[in-house]
Design a protein around this nucleic acid. Sequence first.
DNA 1: GCCAATCTGAATGTCGGACAATAATACCGT
DNA 2: ACGGTATTATTGTCCGACATTCAGATTGGC
Lengths: 233, 233
Amino acid sequence: MIHLPIERQRVCELVANHLIQQISDRRLKPGDPLATERELTQTYGVGRSSVREALRILESKGLIRSAGKGTFAVAEYANPLQHSVRLLLTLQEIALPELFEVRKILEVEAAGLAAARRTDDDLAEMARRIEEMVEGLSSQERYIAADLQFHLAIATATRNRIAVHVMQAIREALHRALASIFQIPGSPQQSLAQHKEILRAIAAGNQDEARQRMREHLLRVEGDIRDALDAGA
Amino acid sequence: MIHLPIERQRVCELVANHLIQQISDRRLKPGDPLATERELTQTYGVGRSSVREALRILESKGLIRSAGKGTFAVAEYANPLQHSVRLLLTLQEIALPELFEVRKILEVEAAGLAAARRTDDDLAEMARRIEEMVEGLSSQERYIAADLQFHLAIATATRNRIAVHVMQAIREALHRALASIFQIPGSPQQSLAQHKEILRAIAAGNQDEARQRMREHLLRVEGDIRDALDAGA
DNA sequence: GCCAATCTGAATGTCGGACAATAATACCGT
DNA sequence: ACGGTATTATTGTCCGACATTCAGATTGGC
């Protein structure tokens, strides 16, 4: 009988795990205000230090958010991957070109899957996001947001939530770089046209076409960003 | 002049960020023993609570690891993504089939990229891992480990570190399911043969062939696992 | 002289108290 | 009823205390 190394669980970890379980069970829903430290202290019968360390753990996992007064159970789109990708970037464990490449792999394939699985609602959502991009041509912020939403709509249409999360995390990390394309003359208009082509292919259920259109789109955007950086540097 | 909401930085966050910076600068290398809480307290001139909360933050990000006596700066393969994927699983925010699908997308494309970029060292590494799988045919643990290493070697050959990290995280989450194939009669031998085909295609620099072989391999493994689960259930 | 048991010290894990700063609430005077 | 003030609640931070556990030194036995 081999006893694996016994990992002593700290009290703060027990509290953290219990809270995670509650969030997982939807007993704590996104946006709900969390109990105060004092209440948690009494509920679990532990010291305040342990409660606070548990909260720090949840916070660093992106599950809760300290908003001045009171800590809230966040989630909504709780995406721990975003934190992780950010961390890997600051650790210089990964670099932007690598993120672009993985993004290309995932989004191209996602377009193909979306063409096979999309519902009418998905198509409507994508069309709506394209509308928003048209309206947002005068506002960088709105344009970029709508662009992100369009690509996320495609990811959603794959019915693969991990794909959505990974894509979201990568795009968040690339946010700055992606925002810069708005400054490139003609780029937003071209993206718009390409988005429409992608949507058409997805609506037609043509997987190969959707993949190809998405690949073209991403390659062009990448080229534009490279040009902009070269010119700026 | 618009002042963005001032995010009050907690002391523990300042300490955590400073330590992250030191790890990022390689001033703290993987395996190095971290300063004691008392030392950190004196170094930064803050209270022990703050130091401890900072350590909990780093720990939950997977940057350090408490090993009974003394906390160590970990990493070497510090992979925050592993924690995140695990968390998403426990939150039931994602499910295993979705992970299998993303794995397929990434690994198939990785095989293609590896065929284009692999060095002789990469090929030698892959061959070595196949050898290990042969030797490990009698030991589930060794076989599974060698299998993982073979696939990671392919990822490494892509020269895309984020791909390596994501694949590693997904495989870690799938570890149980993947380990079960060892129990299926003939499956390890088939995998072995397919691995050799994949390696041959990568060595030949044939991207399409590599992708196709990898796709076949992953589909077969997935089928085996499904069969095993159906039979077991 | 060498080995083993024990003792001591250091470090972590945990609790509780104390205090400042800040935000929400209640209260009160006009 | 309204505005301003007082009170309270909560977080952020520090500090002290104690149990536990582990490493290394000390010491005792053979």
